[in-house]
Amino acid sequence: MIIVGMADCAVAKNPAKITTLGLGSCVGIALYDKSTCVGGIVHIMLPSTEQSRSKDNVAKFADTGIPFLLERMIEEGAYRHRTIAKIAGGASMFSFNGSNKLNIGERNIDATKKMLTELKIPIIAEDTGKNYGRTIVLDTESGEFTVKSALKGINIY
């Protein structure tokens, strides 16, 4: 099992499982190409590089992290036009979140969808929003995308 940390990304070929743990307002984007069994996950924290002082880590942002992940998958042999996306996360854990923190989860989801649309990658599964954390696992053999939560059980997409 390959573990992708916060603001991190990983690509793997079958047989391998990739996971990222405890997504709250962050979004986990899994890309997968069934024909070559190449898959990858990026765990983004913010919608775009504009929101941060430091831009060193491309995997931190939706607008740079997703294209970066796609590039790396293509390097591993994935076909761009066969790649699909499954996304999870973007919750708002607490209802208080006043001021500019307002719904960072939602903004992350919006930015993720916008970037995937721009890259012409279809989103075929989505488990986002609400108010609980998620752990995701991508199986590169089948493309199966498992979303686990603390209290709401397991969903497989």
């Binding site: 743990l21 997504l23 962050c26 002082r53 923190k101 752990t135």
Partner: peptide
Amino acid sequence: TFDMLGAIIDHILIEMSQKA
């Protein structure tokens, strides 16, 4: 709240990562 540690604190980390 009762949930995964990462999920509980990530919005705080997100907020901080905008400044540092």
